Each structure stands twice: as structure tokens, then as C-alpha cells.
Computed example of a mutant assay.
Amino acid sequence: MTTPATANPTGACAPATLPALCDLVHYRGKQGLCTPRAAIVVATVDSLDPRGVESGAVPALDSAEHVHLWVFGPGSAGFAEFNTPRGEAPDGEAPTASTIPPGTWCRPPSHHLKEPPMQKPSAGRIVLFAVDPRMNGGVDHAPAVITQVWNDNLINLQVFPNANDTRSQLRTSVPLHETREDAEAVQSTGLPYAAWWPPRV
């Protein structure tokens, strides 16, 4: 099954995660009011008991994007909405309670995919630094400790190559980037004189 795409705040499309039991989502009422209501996913295609569907105790779900919801509202205990589809926003817009069709759900804004904020350097933090692979066990980058911060994008480093006969090396005024790709984009040939943050895991 193909995972649908959803728009992020920058307008780019990214894969949408399938709903899961107990997910908190926003629901737009069938009357079309743009005020979002908080809702919790109480059934998905993976959690729905087929025996309940066969007996008529609970409605079936049309797809993996359809869910049964319990919708909350101020001053009320809430109500059930069955077989509710994920709402699609117009092209280039993020799905919110004001952009999705009535009677649909979407993720809260904090769930829309977006670039993580640039990390800020400080003394003692670990980054990666480009090195000659011949001096580093065949690998072209080595861990380094930040020893001095000039600004958010310029640092001094103590580099630790992976070689028995190589001592740590001081490097000064090293440009700091968010990723290796960012560093290589600045210097397209050869090893960049640059550091970058280890990948987020």
C-alpha cells in the first residue's frame, strides 16, 4: 500500500504517517466550522475487531487512513465519529482544521514535518571533522571536541583521528554546518575544511 503524502509548512510534500491507536489529532466538524476539536483515535484498521464489524456492533473502516474518533469539546463529554478520513489540504498548504474538508481529521501542527532547528555549539560538544582517510583508518571524517566558540557557525576543535600513531589535532576557525551535505555544498572539490553535527538518531 502506498503511503499518502502531506504538505509541510514550507509547501513540500512528505510521506504521511498512518494513524495509530490513541493518536491525538484535530477534527473538523461536518458543519464546516474551522475551529479545531481535539480527538483521539479509538480504532484503526489494525485495531478494529472484525467480529464486531461482522455483527454490526461497529462500522467498518474504508482504508488505513480512516479511523474511528472520540471527539472532545469544551463543556461536553465528547462524541464519537466513525469512519473518518484523513483530510487533504489544497496544494502547497499544510493540513489544519481550517484547510481540510469538513468531517475529516489531521495531525496537530507540531506533527507536520519541518526542518529541525540548527543546533548551537558550545565547548565540550562533539562534532565531526573532515580528515585525510589515510590518517584515519580509511575513514574521511573523525570526531572532534569543540574547544572554542566564535559564533554559531565558527569554532575551534580538537580532532581525534582513529590511528595509533596520530595525536589529537587542534583546528582553528572551522566553519560549522548542520550536515555534511551542507559543508560539501560550500566546497565542491576535495575534503571541506569544515565540521558538522553527527546525524540525529
Rank of each mutant, 00 (worst) to 15 (best):
A7S: 02
R107P: 01
W70H: 07
P102Q: 02
H111D: 11
A144D: 14
L113Q: 14
G138R: 00
R171C: 13
N8A: 04
P19N: 05
T3K: 05
S173F: 11
P108V: 02
D182I: 11
I155Y: 09
D132N: 15
S173I: 07
A97M: 03
P4T: 14
D62K: 07
P74T: 04
C106E: 06
P116D: 13
L157H: 05
P117T: 15
L21V: 02
P133F: 09
G124N: 06
A130L: 07
P50L: 04
L18N: 10
T172E: 15
R107C: 01
L33D: 14
A130N: 13
P161R: 08
Q31T: 09
P192T: 04
P121S: 06
V186A: 10
C34S: 13
P85N: 09
C13A: 06
G73N: 03
N83I: 03
L33Q: 06
S173W: 09
E65S: 12
S76I: 10
Q187Y: 03
G87D: 06
D46T: 13
T35R: 01
L170E: 14
V149I: 08
S168W: 13
N153C: 14
R37Q: 12
G190I: 06
V131P: 05
E88S: 08
V131I: 15
P19L: 12
P133N: 09
R167A: 12
D46I: 05
A43R: 11
S55Q: 07
T104D: 00
T35V: 05
A7G: 00
H141V: 03
V25M: 04
W70D: 02
F160T: 14
A64W: 13
H68N: 01
D182N: 13
T147S: 12
A16N: 05
T172G: 04
L113S: 15
L33I: 01
D23K: 07
M135L: 15
G32F: 00
A12G: 02
K120E: 14
P9T: 02
V201L: 12
P198K: 01
Y27W: 06
S76P: 00
A43N: 10
P108W: 00
H141R: 02
D152N: 14
I126Q: 12
P143A: 10
G92A: 10
